[in-house]
Design a protein around this nucleic acid. Structure first.
Lengths: 194, 194
DNA sequence: CTCATTTTAGTACAAATGTACAAATAATTT
DNA sequence: AAATTATTTGTACATTTGTACTAAAATGAG
């Protein structure tokens, strides 16, 4: 593994453990036992490291087309939550990061628009399949997408406020929270498919 | 208005506008056109100011007993969201703040426990009144409380990621998001009561 | 008015950080 | 082997911040 990759890995670990407000290039260098000038050779400053990690994360989340069944949806949710957990510092400092790096906001919004469409199509499909209720107005489904996104982006933070779950176990807990979230939208047939 | 109150007001404004990671005692002093030593006379450091503002906010949110009707619930939600908007920096930097000031976590958790009980009781009441569905398992209601809290704590952040709504208008938008959130839990009778 | 107390201002200093630059070392090419 | 390029280190400097301390100014009590 090259120096650049080791920098990114060490930075990710330190950001996750201690936060972007206390970790500087010098801390990362000390942890790696190299000079801070060496890191500067690859990244001008800490913000550039953060931006690179963020892009890595988004690339790993690359969307996989429209989801067509309930088990597929569950799988997708768990995969995404696992990725988010690995890059959890991003979500804990999300607003501070996009304020410092406005470009990332564009990335985020582009992705959001695509995912929103995909999710709405999945919901429509589930209604056709008789898994989801057909008696709910459109704005409720729109709101559901927003709810899922808000919780998807901030479950890590919510958990840290209460520290109910420690370590990777939190992924399982919040995957089932999202399952519960969908429960009242299911038809009798949908509930059986669970 | 005394100097101490003016410090707290100025700090709140600057924290909301620019964030706790960039605003120091010296910035607040410059904005107020007083010396930073003067602020130090009242608060040892910026963390003490943050803690004081947080306590003010929690005091303003003081819980009002169990909610017994749908309109009362809507009112309560709107009131709380308005308070949160006024103190929005807290929610944007929530995790960073409780990491720096672990005592606030205790405050938060005590409040959460009380509110959780109250909400569950309200839901039970609404089921008895035939407004809420009676066919949903307990864990779904537990999860609903968590969902409401997660969104309640992070709607400000979620909005800033997309910047859909600017200024106080955001309160209205997210109040109706929470209304939508409850929609699939309503019975036919409950839907009419809206 | 005088004295004591409270409030405000000014200054100074150490530590941390971002940034720049030159020198040394390692790796690669010719 | 010599020259070139890539990588790493050491150092230095300006700026910011937290913190401490002293002095000045304002306020209030007797």
């Amino acid at each position: 593994m090259g120096t650049k990759e080791r920098i990114l890995e060490t930075a990710l670990r330190l950001f996750n453990e201690q936060g972007i407000d206390v970790i500087t290039i010098r801390h990362i260098a000390k942890e790696m036992e190299i000079s801070h000038s060496n890191i500067q050779y690859y990244f001008k400053n800490a913000d550039e490291i953060i931006a690179t990690i963020y892009e890595q994360h988004l690339a790993a989340l690359e969307s996989t087309g429209i989801i067509e069944s309930m088990p597929e949806l569950m799988d997708s949710i768990k995969t995404i939550l696992t990725h988010i957990y690995r890059y959890r510092f991003i979500y804990i400092y999300f607003v501070a990061i996009v304020r410092r790096l406005p470009d990332l906001k564009t990335f985020y919004n582009n992705r959001y628009k695509i995912r929103r469409e995909q999710l709405l199509k999945t919901f429509a499909l589930f209604r056709e399949q008789g898994i989801f209720r057909a008696d709910l107005p459109d704005h409720v489904w729109e709101s559901l997408v927003k709810q899922i996104y808000t919780i998807g982006d901030f479950w890590i933070s919510a958990n840290e406020l209460t520290t109910n779950y420690k370590g990777p176990a939190v992924v399982k807990a919040y995957a089932s929270l999202i399952t519960d979230m969908l429960y009242p939208y299911l038809t009798a047939k949908g509930r059986k498919s669970l």
